[in-house]
Design a protein around this nucleic acid. Sequence first.
DNA 1: CGATCACTTGATCGGTTTCAAGGTCGGTGG
DNA 2: CCACCGACCTTGAAACCGATCAAGTGATCG
Lengths: 226, 226
Amino acid sequence: MLHSTIEPSADHHPIWSDDAFSSNGVRSLAAYSPLFREGDPATHFYEVLDGCVRAFKIFPDGRRQIVSFAFAGDIVGFGHGDHYRFDCDTIAATRLRAIHKSSLLRAMHDRPDLGEKLLEIAADEVTNMRDLSILLCRKTAVERIASFLLSMTKRNEAAASDGRRSLPMCRADIADFLGLTIETVSRTLTKLRALRVIDLPDRAGFVVRDMHRLQLLAQCDDNTGH
Amino acid sequence: MLHSTIEPSADHHPIWSDDAFSSNGVRSLAAYSPLFREGDPATHFYEVLDGCVRAFKIFPDGRRQIVSFAFAGDIVGFGHGDHYRFDCDTIAATRLRAIHKSSLLRAMHDRPDLGEKLLEIAADEVTNMRDLSILLCRKTAVERIASFLLSMTKRNEAAASDGRRSLPMCRADIADFLGLTIETVSRTLTKLRALRVIDLPDRAGFVVRDMHRLQLLAQCDDNTGH
DNA sequence: CGATCACTTGATCGGTTTCAAGGTCGGTGG
DNA sequence: CCACCGACCTTGAAACCGATCAAGTGATCG
Protein backbone atom coordinates (compact mmCIF):
# COMPACT_ATOMS: atom_id res chain seq x y z
CA MET A 1 0.00 0.00 0.00
CA LEU A 2 1.80 2.99 -1.21
CA HIS A 3 0.67 6.51 -1.24
CA SER A 4 3.06 7.47 -3.96
CA THR A 5 1.42 7.72 -7.32
CA ILE A 6 3.13 6.47 -10.41
CA GLU A 7 3.01 9.47 -12.66
CA PRO A 8 3.87 9.20 -16.34
CA SER A 9 6.82 11.39 -17.18
CA ALA A 10 7.08 13.33 -20.42
CA ASP A 11 10.30 11.98 -21.85
CA HIS A 12 9.69 8.26 -21.75
CA HIS A 13 6.94 5.71 -21.42
CA PRO A 14 4.88 5.72 -18.25
CA ILE A 15 6.44 3.12 -16.06
CA TRP A 16 3.57 0.68 -16.03
CA SER A 17 2.62 0.87 -19.69
CA ASP A 18 5.18 -1.52 -21.13
CA ASP A 19 3.77 -4.33 -23.18
CA ALA A 20 4.42 -6.90 -20.51
CA PHE A 21 1.85 -5.39 -18.17
CA SER A 22 -0.36 -3.15 -20.25
CA SER A 23 -3.98 -2.26 -19.72
CA ASN A 24 -5.22 -5.78 -20.39
CA GLY A 25 -4.15 -6.49 -16.82
CA VAL A 26 -7.04 -4.36 -15.54
CA ARG A 27 -9.62 -6.12 -13.40
CA SER A 28 -12.90 -4.94 -11.91
CA LEU A 29 -13.88 -6.45 -8.60
CA ALA A 30 -16.98 -6.20 -6.44
CA ALA A 31 -16.78 -5.23 -2.79
CA TYR A 32 -15.15 -7.80 -0.51
CA SER A 33 -13.43 -9.75 -3.27
CA PRO A 34 -10.08 -11.24 -2.31
CA LEU A 35 -6.92 -10.11 -4.11
CA PHE A 36 -4.71 -12.64 -2.44
CA ARG A 37 -4.45 -14.62 0.78
CA GLU A 38 -1.57 -14.99 3.17
CA GLY A 39 0.73 -17.73 1.95
CA ASP A 40 -0.17 -17.43 -1.75
CA PRO A 41 2.85 -17.17 -4.08
CA ALA A 42 3.57 -13.45 -4.40
CA THR A 43 3.38 -13.11 -8.18
CA HIS A 44 1.81 -9.68 -8.70
CA PHE A 45 1.70 -6.10 -7.60
CA TYR A 46 -1.63 -4.35 -7.98
CA GLU A 47 -2.15 -0.71 -8.80
CA VAL A 48 -5.48 0.53 -7.47
CA LEU A 49 -7.23 2.55 -10.21
CA ASP A 50 -10.30 3.41 -8.17
CA GLY A 51 -12.17 2.02 -5.19
CA CYS A 52 -10.48 0.86 -2.03
CA VAL A 53 -8.49 -2.11 -0.83
CA ARG A 54 -7.50 -3.28 2.65
CA ALA A 55 -4.54 -5.42 3.66
CA PHE A 56 -4.81 -7.33 6.91
CA LYS A 57 -3.57 -10.17 8.99
CA ILE A 58 -5.70 -12.56 10.99
CA PHE A 59 -4.30 -14.14 14.12
CA PRO A 60 -4.99 -17.65 15.40
CA ASP A 61 -7.16 -16.26 18.18
CA GLY A 62 -9.31 -14.34 15.73
CA ARG A 63 -7.92 -10.88 16.28
CA ARG A 64 -7.31 -8.95 13.11
CA GLN A 65 -4.93 -6.13 12.30
CA ILE A 66 -5.55 -4.06 9.21
CA VAL A 67 -2.13 -3.04 7.99
CA SER A 68 -3.17 -0.51 5.40
CA PHE A 69 -5.88 0.86 3.18
CA ALA A 70 -5.07 1.55 -0.47
CA PHE A 71 -6.87 4.06 -2.67
CA ALA A 72 -6.59 5.14 -6.29
CA GLY A 73 -2.93 5.50 -7.26
CA ASP A 74 -1.65 3.28 -4.46
CA ILE A 75 0.11 -0.01 -5.04
CA VAL A 76 -0.42 -3.19 -3.06
CA GLY A 77 1.65 -6.31 -2.91
CA PHE A 78 5.02 -4.75 -2.33
CA GLY A 79 7.28 -5.77 0.50
CA HIS A 80 6.41 -9.46 0.55
CA GLY A 81 8.90 -12.20 -0.10
CA ASP A 82 8.09 -15.17 -2.31
CA HIS A 83 4.74 -15.52 -0.62
CA TYR A 84 2.26 -12.88 0.47
CA ARG A 85 2.52 -12.18 4.16
CA PHE A 86 -1.09 -11.15 4.71
CA ASP A 87 -4.53 -11.11 3.14
CA CYS A 88 -5.81 -8.49 0.78
CA ASP A 89 -9.46 -7.62 0.01
CA THR A 90 -11.47 -4.96 -1.73
CA ILE A 91 -13.88 -3.10 0.55
CA ALA A 92 -15.81 -1.47 -2.30
CA ALA A 93 -16.19 -1.95 -6.03
CA THR A 94 -12.62 -1.54 -7.22
CA ARG A 95 -10.69 -1.49 -10.48
CA LEU A 96 -7.06 -2.47 -10.39
CA ARG A 97 -4.21 -3.28 -12.70
CA ALA A 98 -2.25 -6.44 -12.07
CA ILE A 99 1.50 -6.18 -12.65
CA HIS A 100 3.66 -9.27 -13.03
CA LYS A 101 6.37 -9.09 -10.45
CA SER A 102 8.85 -11.16 -12.43
CA SER A 103 8.52 -9.16 -15.63
CA LEU A 104 8.93 -5.97 -13.66
CA LEU A 105 12.13 -7.27 -12.12
CA ARG A 106 13.38 -8.30 -15.56
CA ALA A 107 12.56 -4.86 -16.91
CA MET A 108 14.63 -3.37 -14.13
CA HIS A 109 17.80 -4.88 -15.61
CA ASP A 110 17.36 -2.85 -18.80
CA ARG A 111 16.16 0.31 -17.14
CA PRO A 112 17.98 1.27 -13.95
CA ASP A 113 15.69 4.30 -13.51
CA LEU A 114 12.92 1.80 -12.90
CA GLY A 115 14.96 0.36 -10.06
CA GLU A 116 15.27 3.76 -8.49
CA LYS A 117 11.55 4.30 -8.83
CA LEU A 118 10.87 1.00 -7.12
CA LEU A 119 13.27 1.90 -4.34
CA GLU A 120 11.39 5.13 -3.88
CA ILE A 121 8.15 3.18 -3.62
CA ALA A 122 9.76 0.90 -1.09
CA ALA A 123 10.88 3.90 0.96
CA ASP A 124 7.30 5.20 0.93
CA GLU A 125 6.02 1.85 2.06
CA VAL A 126 8.48 1.88 4.94
CA THR A 127 7.31 5.36 5.85
CA ASN A 128 3.69 4.26 5.88
CA MET A 129 4.41 1.32 8.10
CA ARG A 130 6.41 3.50 10.45
CA ASP A 131 3.54 5.97 10.57
CA LEU A 132 1.19 3.16 11.47
CA SER A 133 3.50 2.01 14.25
CA ILE A 134 3.59 5.52 15.60
CA LEU A 135 -0.15 5.82 15.35
CA LEU A 136 -0.63 2.57 17.24
CA CYS A 137 1.74 3.63 19.99
CA ARG A 138 -0.06 6.94 20.37
CA LYS A 139 -2.01 6.62 23.53
CA THR A 140 -5.50 8.03 23.33
CA ALA A 141 -8.39 7.04 21.11
CA VAL A 142 -9.01 10.68 20.17
CA GLU A 143 -5.48 11.05 18.85
CA ARG A 144 -5.77 7.90 16.80
CA ILE A 145 -9.11 8.82 15.28
CA ALA A 146 -8.00 12.39 14.61
CA SER A 147 -4.83 11.17 12.91
CA PHE A 148 -6.82 8.71 10.88
CA LEU A 149 -9.32 11.29 9.67
CA LEU A 150 -6.47 13.65 8.88
CA SER A 151 -4.74 11.04 6.75
CA MET A 152 -8.03 10.35 4.98
CA THR A 153 -8.37 14.03 4.06
CA LYS A 154 -4.80 14.08 2.79
CA ARG A 155 -5.09 10.94 0.71
CA ASN A 156 -8.55 11.39 -0.80
CA GLU A 157 -7.80 14.91 -1.86
CA ALA A 158 -11.12 15.58 -3.52
CA ALA A 159 -13.88 16.60 -1.14
CA ALA A 160 -17.42 17.25 -2.33
CA SER A 161 -18.58 20.86 -2.61
CA ASP A 162 -20.11 20.60 0.87
CA GLY A 163 -16.78 19.33 2.19
CA ARG A 164 -17.96 15.77 2.58
CA ARG A 165 -15.30 13.12 2.29
CA SER A 166 -15.85 9.45 1.76
CA LEU A 167 -15.10 6.98 4.53
CA PRO A 168 -15.52 3.76 2.57
CA MET A 169 -14.54 1.33 5.30
CA CYS A 170 -16.90 0.20 8.06
CA ARG A 171 -16.33 0.92 11.75
CA ALA A 172 -14.93 -2.54 12.33
CA ASP A 173 -12.23 -1.89 9.73
CA ILE A 174 -11.32 1.43 11.31
CA ALA A 175 -11.20 -0.25 14.71
CA ASP A 176 -8.94 -3.05 13.50
CA PHE A 177 -6.68 -0.53 11.78
CA LEU A 178 -6.30 1.72 14.81
CA GLY A 179 -6.13 -1.00 17.43
CA LEU A 180 -9.42 0.00 19.07
CA THR A 181 -12.87 -1.57 19.42
CA ILE A 182 -15.88 -0.69 17.29
CA GLU A 183 -17.53 0.93 20.30
CA THR A 184 -14.57 3.16 21.03
CA VAL A 185 -14.37 4.24 17.39
CA SER A 186 -18.05 5.12 17.46
CA ARG A 187 -17.85 6.94 20.78
CA THR A 188 -14.80 8.89 19.70
CA LEU A 189 -16.34 9.98 16.41
CA THR A 190 -19.41 11.12 18.34
CA LYS A 191 -17.16 13.02 20.71
CA LEU A 192 -15.38 14.81 17.86
CA ARG A 193 -18.78 15.75 16.43
CA ALA A 194 -19.86 17.06 19.82
CA LEU A 195 -16.69 19.16 19.87
CA ARG A 196 -17.71 20.62 16.47
CA VAL A 197 -14.46 19.36 14.96
CA ILE A 198 -16.20 17.16 12.41
CA ASP A 199 -19.66 16.36 11.09
CA LEU A 200 -21.01 12.91 10.35
CA PRO A 201 -23.64 13.41 7.65
CA ASP A 202 -23.98 9.66 7.11
CA ARG A 203 -22.28 6.40 7.96
CA ALA A 204 -19.81 6.43 5.11
CA GLY A 205 -18.74 10.05 5.11
CA PHE A 206 -17.42 12.88 7.26
CA VAL A 207 -16.83 16.61 7.04
CA VAL A 208 -13.97 18.45 8.67
CA ARG A 209 -15.43 21.53 10.33
CA ASP A 210 -12.33 22.69 12.19
CA MET A 211 -9.16 21.49 10.51
CA HIS A 212 -6.92 23.37 12.91
CA ARG A 213 -8.36 21.70 15.98
CA LEU A 214 -8.35 18.34 14.23
CA GLN A 215 -4.63 18.77 13.68
CA LEU A 216 -4.16 19.76 17.31
CA LEU A 217 -6.01 16.65 18.45
CA ALA A 218 -3.85 14.51 16.17
CA GLN A 219 -0.99 16.02 18.13
CA CYS A 220 2.17 15.00 16.33
CA ASP A 221 3.21 17.40 13.61
CA ASP A 222 4.50 14.76 11.27
CA ASN A 223 3.19 11.50 9.98
CA THR A 224 0.22 9.67 8.55
CA GLY A 225 -0.30 10.47 4.94
CA HIS A 226 3.18 11.96 4.46
CA MET B 1 17.09 -1.41 10.36
CA LEU B 2 17.26 -4.52 8.39
CA HIS B 3 17.66 -8.00 9.58
CA SER B 4 18.96 -9.20 6.27
CA THR B 5 22.67 -9.66 6.19
CA ILE B 6 24.71 -8.63 3.20
CA GLU B 7 26.61 -11.74 2.38
CA PRO B 8 29.50 -11.66 -0.10
CA SER B 9 28.83 -13.89 -3.07
CA ALA B 10 31.50 -16.01 -4.66
CA ASP B 11 31.45 -14.82 -8.24
CA HIS B 12 31.84 -11.09 -7.78
CA HIS B 13 32.88 -8.50 -5.28
CA PRO B 14 30.98 -8.36 -2.01
CA ILE B 15 28.38 -5.69 -2.46
CA TRP B 16 29.76 -3.24 0.05
CA SER B 17 33.44 -3.61 -0.76
CA ASP B 18 33.66 -1.37 -3.81
CA ASP B 19 36.27 1.32 -3.60
CA ALA B 20 33.74 4.04 -3.06
CA PHE B 21 32.73 2.70 0.31
CA SER B 22 35.45 0.33 1.40
CA SER B 23 36.56 -0.50 4.89
CA ASN B 24 37.90 2.99 5.55
CA GLY B 25 34.28 3.91 6.16
CA VAL B 26 34.32 1.93 9.43
CA ARG B 27 33.70 3.93 12.58
CA SER B 28 33.79 2.98 16.23
CA LEU B 29 31.36 4.77 18.48
CA ALA B 30 30.83 4.79 22.23
CA ALA B 31 27.42 4.11 23.76
CA TYR B 32 24.80 6.80 23.16
CA SER B 33 26.60 8.46 20.26
CA PRO B 34 24.31 9.92 17.62
CA LEU B 35 24.44 8.54 14.06
CA PHE B 36 22.07 11.13 12.68
CA ARG B 37 19.19 13.34 13.76
CA GLU B 38 15.77 13.78 12.23
CA GLY B 39 16.00 16.36 9.47
CA ASP B 40 19.67 15.82 8.65
CA PRO B 41 20.36 15.26 4.95
CA ALA B 42 20.15 11.51 4.38
CA THR B 43 23.58 10.91 2.93
CA HIS B 44 24.57 7.50 4.31
CA PHE B 45 23.43 4.02 5.11
CA TYR B 46 25.17 2.34 8.02
CA GLU B 47 25.95 -1.33 8.34
CA VAL B 48 26.18 -2.38 11.97
CA LEU B 49 29.29 -4.55 12.44
CA ASP B 50 28.80 -5.13 16.15
CA GLY B 51 27.08 -3.47 19.05
CA CYS B 52 23.57 -2.12 18.86
CA VAL B 53 21.77 0.89 17.44
CA ARG B 54 18.30 2.30 18.05
CA ALA B 55 16.17 4.41 15.71
CA PHE B 56 13.49 6.57 17.29
CA LYS B 57 11.24 9.53 16.90
CA ILE B 58 10.53 12.15 19.53
CA PHE B 59 7.20 13.95 19.54
CA PRO B 60 6.54 17.55 20.48
CA ASP B 61 4.90 16.42 23.72
CA GLY B 62 7.97 14.44 24.73
CA ARG B 63 6.70 10.98 23.94
CA ARG B 64 9.18 8.78 22.17
CA GLN B 65 8.69 5.81 19.89
CA ILE B 66 11.61 3.52 19.22
CA VAL B 67 11.10 2.29 15.69
CA SER B 68 13.73 -0.40 15.61
CA PHE B 69 16.86 -1.85 17.10
CA ALA B 70 19.70 -2.84 14.80
CA PHE B 71 22.32 -5.47 15.59
CA ALA B 72 25.38 -6.84 13.79
CA GLY B 73 24.55 -7.39 10.12
CA ASP B 74 21.62 -4.98 10.08
CA ILE B 75 21.54 -1.81 8.05
CA VAL B 76 20.20 1.53 9.23
CA GLY B 77 19.31 4.61 7.25
CA PHE B 78 17.23 2.95 4.58
CA GLY B 79 13.72 4.09 3.75
CA HIS B 80 14.22 7.80 4.33
CA GLY B 81 13.82 10.41 1.64
CA ASP B 82 16.32 13.22 1.16
CA HIS B 83 16.34 13.81 4.90
CA TYR B 84 16.35 11.35 7.75
CA ARG B 85 12.90 10.93 9.20
CA PHE B 86 13.96 10.04 12.73
CA ASP B 87 16.92 10.03 15.11
CA CYS B 88 19.47 7.28 15.37
CA ASP B 89 21.76 6.48 18.34
CA THR B 90 24.09 3.76 19.51
CA ILE B 91 23.02 2.15 22.80
CA ALA B 92 26.34 0.37 23.35
CA ALA B 93 29.86 0.58 22.00
CA THR B 94 29.30 -0.06 18.31
CA ARG B 95 31.34 -0.42 15.14
CA LEU B 96 29.67 0.46 11.89
CA ARG B 97 30.48 1.00 8.25
CA ALA B 98 29.21 4.15 6.60
CA ILE B 99 28.04 3.75 3.02
CA HIS B 100 27.54 6.72 0.73
CA LYS B 101 24.00 6.64 -0.51
CA SER B 102 24.71 8.54 -3.73
CA SER B 103 27.59 6.34 -4.81
CA LEU B 104 25.50 3.28 -4.09
CA LEU B 105 22.68 4.60 -6.27
CA ARG B 106 25.18 5.39 -9.02
CA ALA B 107 26.57 1.90 -8.76
CA MET B 108 23.08 0.54 -9.21
CA HIS B 109 22.96 1.87 -12.76
CA ASP B 110 25.89 -0.29 -13.77
CA ARG B 111 24.89 -3.33 -11.80
CA PRO B 112 21.20 -4.21 -11.87
CA ASP B 113 21.77 -7.10 -9.48
CA LEU B 114 22.63 -4.49 -6.90
CA GLY B 115 19.24 -2.93 -7.46
CA GLU B 116 17.57 -6.25 -6.81
CA LYS B 117 19.55 -6.67 -3.64
CA LEU B 118 18.52 -3.24 -2.47
CA LEU B 119 14.90 -4.01 -3.25
CA GLU B 120 15.19 -7.13 -1.19
CA ILE B 121 16.56 -5.09 1.67
CA ALA B 122 13.72 -2.63 1.25
CA ALA B 123 11.19 -5.45 1.37
CA ASP B 124 12.76 -6.68 4.59
CA GLU B 125 12.52 -3.21 6.04
CA VAL B 126 8.85 -3.07 5.15
CA THR B 127 8.36 -6.44 6.79
CA ASN B 128 10.04 -5.27 9.97
CA MET B 129 7.89 -2.18 10.17
CA ARG B 130 4.78 -4.23 9.58
CA ASP B 131 5.85 -6.63 12.31
CA LEU B 132 6.25 -3.71 14.68
CA SER B 133 2.77 -2.48 13.83
CA ILE B 134 1.38 -5.89 14.55
CA LEU B 135 3.30 -6.10 17.80
CA LEU B 136 1.96 -2.73 18.91
CA CYS B 137 -1.61 -3.70 18.09
CA ARG B 138 -1.31 -6.80 20.20
CA LYS B 139 -3.28 -6.00 23.27
CA THR B 140 -1.64 -7.27 26.42
CA ALA B 141 1.69 -6.38 27.95
CA VAL B 142 2.59 -10.06 28.33
CA GLU B 143 2.11 -10.69 24.62
CA ARG B 144 4.26 -7.71 23.70
CA ILE B 145 7.09 -8.64 26.05
CA ALA B 146 6.96 -12.30 25.03
CA SER B 147 7.09 -11.34 21.35
CA PHE B 148 9.95 -8.99 22.01
CA LEU B 149 12.00 -11.58 23.86
CA LEU B 150 11.25 -14.09 21.13
CA SER B 151 12.50 -11.74 18.45
CA MET B 152 15.63 -11.10 20.50
CA THR B 153 16.35 -14.83 20.64
CA LYS B 154 15.87 -15.08 16.89
CA ARG B 155 18.04 -12.13 15.99
CA ASN B 156 20.93 -12.62 18.42
CA GLU B 157 21.30 -16.23 17.51
CA ALA B 158 24.24 -16.98 19.75
CA ALA B 159 23.33 -17.69 23.35
CA ALA B 160 25.97 -18.32 25.99
CA SER B 161 26.52 -21.90 27.14
CA ASP B 162 24.17 -21.29 30.06
CA GLY B 163 21.54 -20.02 27.62
CA ARG B 164 21.96 -16.40 28.60
CA ARG B 165 21.15 -13.87 25.90
CA SER B 166 22.12 -10.24 25.89
CA LEU B 167 19.45 -7.55 26.33
CA PRO B 168 21.59 -4.51 25.59
CA MET B 169 18.87 -1.87 25.78
CA CYS B 170 17.58 -0.41 29.04
CA ARG B 171 14.00 -0.84 30.29
CA ALA B 172 13.06 2.61 29.05
CA ASP B 173 14.08 1.65 25.52
CA ILE B 174 12.07 -1.57 25.67
CA ALA B 175 9.11 0.40 26.98
CA ASP B 176 9.30 3.00 24.23
CA PHE B 177 9.65 0.28 21.63
CA LEU B 178 6.64 -1.72 22.84
CA GLY B 179 4.41 1.22 23.69
CA LEU B 180 4.45 0.46 27.43
CA THR B 181 5.85 2.17 30.52
CA ILE B 182 9.05 1.23 32.33
CA GLU B 183 7.03 -0.03 35.26
CA THR B 184 4.90 -2.32 33.13
CA VAL B 185 7.95 -3.72 31.37
CA SER B 186 9.53 -4.46 34.72
CA ARG B 187 6.39 -5.99 36.20
CA THR B 188 5.80 -8.12 33.14
CA LEU B 189 9.35 -9.44 33.07
CA THR B 190 8.99 -10.29 36.76
CA LYS B 191 5.73 -12.06 35.99
CA LEU B 192 7.30 -14.16 33.24
CA ARG B 193 10.07 -15.10 35.65
CA ALA B 194 7.49 -16.08 38.27
CA LEU B 195 5.84 -18.26 35.63
CA ARG B 196 9.22 -19.97 35.07
CA VAL B 197 9.16 -18.99 31.42
CA ILE B 198 12.36 -16.96 31.63
CA ASP B 199 15.17 -16.17 34.03
CA LEU B 200 16.66 -12.76 34.63
CA PRO B 201 20.21 -13.42 35.77
CA ASP B 202 21.10 -9.72 35.55
CA ARG B 203 19.80 -6.45 34.20
CA ALA B 204 21.14 -6.82 30.72
CA GLY B 205 20.43 -10.45 30.03
CA PHE B 206 17.74 -13.13 30.03
CA VAL B 207 17.44 -16.89 29.68
CA VAL B 208 14.55 -18.67 28.04
CA ARG B 209 13.55 -21.53 30.31
CA ASP B 210 10.41 -22.63 28.49
CA MET B 211 10.53 -21.70 24.82
CA HIS B 212 7.24 -23.41 24.07
CA ARG B 213 5.30 -21.43 26.62
CA LEU B 214 7.06 -18.25 25.58
CA GLN B 215 5.81 -18.85 22.06
CA LEU B 216 2.31 -19.52 23.34
CA LEU B 217 2.36 -16.27 25.30
CA ALA B 218 3.55 -14.42 22.21
CA GLN B 219 0.47 -15.92 20.58
CA CYS B 220 0.84 -15.14 16.91
CA ASP B 221 2.71 -17.78 14.98
CA ASP B 222 4.31 -15.37 12.56
CA ASN B 223 6.26 -12.22 12.78
CA THR B 224 8.86 -10.26 14.72
CA GLY B 225 12.31 -11.26 13.67
CA HIS B 226 11.13 -13.04 10.53
C1' DC C 1 30.53 5.06 52.62
C1' DG C 2 27.22 7.88 50.50
C1' DA C 3 25.33 9.28 46.04
C1' DT C 4 23.33 8.24 41.93
C1' DC C 5 21.16 5.66 38.48
C1' DA C 6 18.44 1.84 36.84
C1' DC C 7 15.23 -1.08 38.14
C1' DT C 8 11.51 -3.12 41.12
C1' DT C 9 7.36 -3.10 43.76
C1' DG C 10 3.05 -1.13 45.69
C1' DA C 11 -1.50 1.56 45.51
C1' DT C 12 -4.59 4.28 43.13
C1' DC C 13 -6.66 6.29 39.00
C1' DG C 14 -8.46 6.55 34.43
C1' DG C 15 -9.41 5.16 29.73
C1' DT C 16 -10.64 1.44 26.94
C1' DT C 17 -12.78 -2.91 26.72
C1' DT C 18 -16.49 -5.69 27.58
C1' DC C 19 -21.18 -6.83 28.02
C1' DA C 20 -25.71 -5.38 27.04
C1' DA C 21 -29.41 -2.59 24.99
C1' DG C 22 -31.29 0.48 21.91
C1' DG C 23 -31.37 2.96 17.37
C1' DT C 24 -31.18 3.68 12.32
C1' DC C 25 -31.20 2.52 7.72
C1' DG C 26 -31.90 -0.21 3.58
C1' DG C 27 -33.90 -4.13 1.65
C1' DT C 28 -37.45 -7.67 1.14
C1' DG C 29 -41.79 -9.62 1.05
C1' DG C 30 -46.51 -9.38 2.14
C1' DC D 1 -46.97 1.04 0.42
C1' DC D 2 -45.76 -0.47 4.64
C1' DA D 3 -44.14 -3.75 8.16
C1' DC D 4 -40.55 -6.50 9.26
C1' DC D 5 -35.83 -7.98 9.41
C1' DG D 6 -30.98 -7.85 9.74
C1' DA D 7 -26.66 -5.41 9.47
C1' DC D 8 -24.39 -1.75 11.18
C1' DC D 9 -23.94 1.66 14.33
C1' DT D 10 -24.65 4.17 18.80
C1' DT D 11 -25.09 4.51 23.69
C1' DG D 12 -24.88 2.99 28.58
C1' DA D 13 -22.80 0.64 32.83
C1' DA D 14 -19.32 -2.05 34.89
C1' DA D 15 -14.83 -4.45 34.88
C1' DC D 16 -10.07 -4.56 33.91
C1' DC D 17 -5.52 -3.46 32.50
C1' DG D 18 -1.88 -0.45 32.23
C1' DA D 19 -0.54 4.42 33.56
C1' DT D 20 0.61 7.25 37.11
C1' DC D 21 2.33 8.51 41.52
C1' DA D 22 5.23 7.10 45.12
C1' DA D 23 8.45 4.44 47.65
C1' DG D 24 11.97 1.11 48.11
C1' DT D 25 15.92 -1.92 46.46
C1' DG D 26 20.29 -2.91 44.39
C1' DA D 27 24.38 -2.07 42.01
C1' DT D 28 28.24 0.94 40.58
C1' DC D 29 31.43 4.62 41.22
C1' DG D 30 33.46 8.26 43.15
